[in-house]
């Protein structure tokens, strides 16, 4: 089998988990695992990658100090041409998604995004991904090619403990293009609100099922009674019904409360990633196939507008007793 090239992702001085996850997953597919590390003075990440890779290609250049998808794309084009890998793995992250489709177009190699499982058929990967917000798995047949590109969903593979000591090959920056048409300016940190939900021990999460902001009081009443804070799915924050610092998920916060009561939340992967670490997860949703029931401990399949007021009543009774 040909080599597997794995792009290391890092930001603001930290290696991102998906990098080590992909190296661990690649090792199980067979073939030589080659980590590609583009950065400025990130020798520590090269050492980290070497623990899970057979070889680390390390390009140390100011061009890669902050992520620029064009610089990354041009570097990968050159490294793919030079190394002829059979497979290229990139994180299906805000960075990876901003670059991989352009890399696939410019190299002419096929791409499947947001991959959640890989089987190999000789040199050809057979990726699985999801459709309809995780409600179906789709088995994909890629066009025959010399190199296949996949973007891998975070947490698809567990990150293994370091077991290798791959050779670190310092490589000159292969990119000489003028990239001034797109320039990194700065990172802007998220706003801080009145409640830090990452510190809350009880959370009631509200999703799209609440339908309108005028319905929020029914969950607010329950939350208040439980002594819980309100959290929200992306849809509720996008609609402006709750502030963005209440958003749980990949683009929001990661929470680990004792209780996460998900009300009208379907449980798309993006949300679940942020709350699956809760001790007890309860879901109330009218769709029996909602993915949230796959990770909840307890579920009620019913109309939240009927169940939540009843639950408030029952909790009141218990508290009064």
């Amino acid at each position: 089998m040909k080599d597997i090239l794995v792009l290391m992702e890092h930001r603001q001085g930290a290696m991102r988990d998906v990098s080590l996850e992909m190296l661990s997953g690649a090792a199980k597919l067979g073939g030589t695992v080659v980590a590609v590390l583009l950065g400025k003075d990130v020798d520590a990440f090269a050492d980290k990658a070497a623990g899970l890779a057979d070889k680390v290609i390390y390009v140390n250049d100011a061009m890669f100090e902050n992520y620029n998808s064009r610089a990354y794309q041009k570097a990968l084009e050159a490294l793919i041409a030079e190394n002829g890998p059979g497979l290229v793995l990139i994180g299906n992250t805000a960075q990876g998604v901003d670059m991989a489709p352009a890399l696939a177009v410019s190299t002419g190699f096929p791409l499947v995004t947001d991959v959640t499982a890989i089987e190999m058929d000789g040199d050809k990967p057979k990726p699985t991904r999801t459709f309809y917000g995780g409600k179906l798995n789709a088995h994909m047949n890629m066009k025959d090619a010399d190199t296949y590109i996949l973007t891998i969903r975070e947490a698809t593979f567990p990150a293994d403990d370091p077991s290798k000591s791959g050779e670190i090959v310092k490589t000159d920056n292969p990119v000489s293009d003028d990239l001034s048409y797109r320039q990194f300016v700065e990172y802007v940190e998220p706003e801080v609100g009145d409640v830090d939900i990452t510190q809350s021990s009880l959370l009631v999460g509200v999703g799209r099922g609440i339908r309108e902001d005028k319905n929020l009081p029914i969950v607010e009443e329950l939350a208040k009674l439980l002594g819980a804070d309100l959290a929200a799915s992306r849809a509720v924050v996008d609609a402006g019904w709750l502030p963005s610092d209440r958003q749980v998920g990949i683009s929001g916060k990661t929470v680990k409360p004792k209780l996460y009561l998900a009300v009208g939340i379907s449980g798309a992967f993006q949300h679940v990633t942020g709350m699956k670490g809760a001790d007890v997860i309860v879901a109330i949703n009218k769709d029996p196939d909602a993915p949230i029931f796959g990770i909840a401990d307890y579920g009620i399949v019913d109309d939240l507008f009927k169940v939540v007021p009843k639950l408030t009543e029952k909790v009141k009774e218990l508290k009064g007793a």
Binding site: L111, K135, H139, N141, G294, G299, I300, K310
Partner: peptide, 30 residues
């Protein structure tokens, strides 16, 4: 780049314990 070969239902982990009954009952159980 790729063709859809087949859909399958997602593999779910251990499913939640579903509380059965009318809202009054399920809310009481919860």
């Amino acid at each position: 780049w790729a063709a859809l070969e087949q859909f399958t239902p997602p593999v779910v982990g251990e499913m939640a314990e579903i509380l059965e009954g009318e809202p009054d009952e399920t809310a009481g159980k919860l």
